[in-house]
Design a protein around this nucleic acid. Structure first.
Lengths: 208, 208
DNA sequence: GGGCGATGGTGACGCCCCGTCACGATTTCA
DNA sequence: TGAAATCGTGACGGGGCGTCACCATCGCCC
């Protein structure tokens, strides 16, 4: 009888494998903290790795550069947001409810992440706006696909989907940013604004 | 008779002053080229200064860092765009014509600048999205002011001006970016899209 | 026009961060 | 249990950064 319960922690593969995922995660966590405290520009690879207690060389066993670890963080965010977006799509009755659900979800997501990012960052410091990492592109594509399907379902006139997607994401991003600067942070109001702008504009768009 | 024509090049102040503006401009020009060829991240202060033939120390007599010279370039663009924007405002009959004029002007401006920036830059390389330099903030403020006045003039209902401005600039930026990726670059179509989206959305916006 | 103080270009220098690599410890597998 | 593979380690060379003492040149005034 090979009862797994008798073997200590055998349920999570070999030790090598375990420390690998642990290190990768530790670096990611440290990077999130350091970027939050020092700002992206100021932070150095060594600031990040120092916080993990690992040696400097070890960093490069996991990521090639500060940029790559930042992208990994962005990917991480996108990966966590994707299922939320998908859920909104699946339970949405029409375009309006999808749009509202998606934007509301994004703003809530933003507000929640806000804390873990902007912590003590020196004012004025800015992040590189999310790059085109695979997962981020995937979110963009997913939004376009969802738009396509929902508008198709409603027999809405064909419009420039690429522009529409870009515009919607742009509005969500920028209004989201402004929202975070206000006290109190009102995701409801911001959502209402963004949704009504887009929804009102949609019928006026040039047809293809 | 102190005829200026007899004095050679006395019209442009002393030599010190002249070389100063010349150097500053040379650095700015070199920076534009280098950023265009190498991308912002890859470019170094020494890449820039090397192209001017000046010594490395001289760079720091004019700018404190690569970031600052980039900001100066952004300021430069904003400063050149501002009068265009202002002209659109002054000759606009109503909100629609102002919006259309401003966005068309911005897209034309973008398309024109496009050449001098993206030259041979390695694909995927990205610029830090325009920072909050004074002149850039001024453009943002000017847009908001213009919106305010035009909407006031038309007795349009009060809406969240900050969100509206942010949203419009966001749409213009992002649709502009996408526009530049297409061949041929069609500023007309892009303008039409952006204007109709915003104009359609405006009446639907929540009132204050 | 000549001498003197101020201005600003110069490039070597020290500093720090980067990415690598040879080494050794630890784990895996037979 | 011993050999092989894996991976953490930190010292090291390379290079970009920002500074500074030096000196050529300019502006100014006698």
């Amino acid at each position: 009888m090979t009862n797994i319960a008798y073997l200590p922690v055998r349920n999570t593969a070999g030790k090598r494998e375990r420390t690998k995922v642990a290190n990768r995660q530790a670096i990611l966590d440290a990077a999130r903290e350091v970027f939050g405290e020092l700002g992206y520009e100021t932070a150095t690879v060594r600031d990040i790795i120092r916080r993990t207690g690992l040696a400097s060389g070890t960093f490069y066993n996991y990521y090639r550069s500060k940029e790559e670890v930042f992208d990994a963080l962005a990917d991480d965010g996108a990966r966590r947001f994707r299922p939320i977006l998908r859920a909104q799509f699946e339970q949405a009755a029409d375009f309006e409810s999808f749009l509202r659900g998606a934007i509301q979800a994004y703003f809530d997501f933003l507000a929640k992440e806000h804390e873990s990012w902007r912590m003590n960052r020196p004012a004025g410091e800015t992040f590189p706006h999310a790059r085109s990492t695979p997962e981020v592109v995937a979110v963009f594509d997913e939004v376009r696909e969802a738009f396509d399907k929902v508008l198709e379902r409603e027999h809405a006139p064909k419009v420039d989907l690429d522009y529409l997607t870009a515009a919607c994401i742009a509005v969500a991003r920028e209004v989201g940013d402004k929202m975070l600067e206000r006290r109190p942070v009102d995701t409801q109001a911001a959502t209402d604004f963004a949704v009504k702008l887009i929804l009102g504009g949609l019928p006026a768009l040039p047809r293809l």
